[in-house]
C-alpha cells in the first residue's frame, strides 16, 4: 500500500516475478493456495483497519460513492468488531474471486501500471464494501427501532452508567476528533485500537512510520491546546 515508498518499483518487479511463477504453476497447487491465503489475510486486516478508522468512507468518497455515514453509525461500527469482521469477510471474498479471475488469470494487472499487486487488490476490495456495509446499516437501524434508547446512546446505554455522563463523553470525543483533519482522526483511532505506527502507515498508505508519528504528535498538540482553552474558559 505504501506507493510513495522508494522500494515500490522493486516490489512491483518482485510482484511480477511472483505472478509469472504462479502462472507457470497454472495458478494452482500449494504455493498458489499459500499466496491466496496471504493476500486474503492482508486484505482482511487492511479492510478491518479501514472500517474501524473510517478510512474506507474517505476512499469511497474519492471514488464518487457517497455513503453519507453519520458519526453515530461510524461509532456503532467501531463498537461492533463482529460486524467489521463480517463486512470485511464478504468484501474480501468477493474481491478475491474477481482479482483471481481477471487480474491474475486474465492478466489485467500489469507491473507497468504503477500499482503493486496488493494495492491493486485493495482497489478491488474498496468497491465490494458498500454492499455488506449497507446491509449492516439496515440491520442497525432496524434494531435501533426496537430499542429507541440505543439510537441515542448505543450499547453503552446498557452499562448501567448515567446516560447523561455517557452522552457528554460521546460528545467530548466527537468534538475532539472533529478538531482534527481526517487523516489525523484515522491515525489516532487506529493507534488507540493498538495498531503500531508501521501498520498504520501500511493501512493508511502513509509513506512511513515516521509520518504516522508526525500525525500523532500534531493531533496530540491540537487536543492539548483545545483542552487548555476549555480549562481556562471553565476556570
Amino acid at each position: 500500500m505504501q506507493e510513495a515508498d522508494s522500494g515500490n518499483l522493486d516490489r512491483r518487479l518482485a510482484d511480477l516475478k511472483l505472478v509469472e511463477g504462479l502462472a507457470a504453476c497454472g495458478f494452482a497447487g500449494p504455493l498458489y493456495v499459500d499466496f491466496s491465503t496471504e493476500m486474503v489475510r492482508y486484505g482482511m486486516s487492511v479492510t478491518e483497519a479501514w472500517l474501524y478508522s473510517g478510512r474506507i468512507f474517505t476512499l469511497l468518497n474519492e471514488r464518487g460513492i457517497h455513503l453519507n455515514v453519520s458519526a453515530w453509525e461510524a461509532q456503532r461500527l467501531r463498537d461492533d468488531p463482529e460486524a467489521i469482521g463480517d463486512i470485511s469477510d464478504i468484501a474480501v471474498a468477493m474481491a478475491w474471486h474477481k482479482f483471481d479471475e481477471r487480474a491474475l488469470r486474465g492478466g489485467e494487472w500489469k507491473a507497468t501500471g504503477g500499482a503493486t499487486l496488493s494495492t491493486y487488490f485493495m482497489g478491488r476490495v474498496i468497491f465490494e464494501v458498500p454492499g455488506p456495509f449497507r446491509q449492516w446499516r439496515r440491520q442497525l437501524h432496524k434494531s435501533a427501532e426496537h430499542d429507541p434508547h440505543e439510537d441515542q446512546l448505543g450499547d453503552r446505554s446498557r452499562l448501567g452508567l448515567d446516560p447523561a455522563v455517557q452522552a457528554a463523553d460521546d460528545c467530548a470525543m466527537h468534538m475532539v476528533l472533529d478538531l482534527l483533519p481526517e487523516i489525523q482522526q484515522q491515525t489516532i483511532l487506529l493507534k488507540t485500537a493498538g495498531y503500531d505506527h508501521g501498520q498504520i502507515a501500511e493501512a493508511l498508505s502513509l509513506p512511513s512510520a515516521r509520518a504516522v508519528e508526525g500525525h500523532v504528535r500534531r493531533a496530540k498538540k491540537k487536543i492539548r491546546e483545545y483542552l487548555d482553552v476549555r480549562g481556562e474558559a471553565r476556570g
Binding site: G21, R41, S45, T119, E202
Partner: peptide, 30 residues
C-alpha cells in the same frame, strides 16, 4: 515451475512482504 524456496524469497520481496505488511497480515489469524 517455481519451487518453494524461490516462492518464499519472491513473496518476501513482493508488496506483501514488507515488515508492516507482514505484521498487518498476522492480525488475521491463519
Amino acid at each position: 515451475n517455481m519451487d518453494e524456496r524461490e516462492y518464499r524469497e519472491l513473496l518476501g520481496r513482493s508488496s506483501l512482504g514488507g515488515d508492516a505488511a507482514r505484521r498487518l497480515r498476522e492480525r488475521t489469524p491463519r
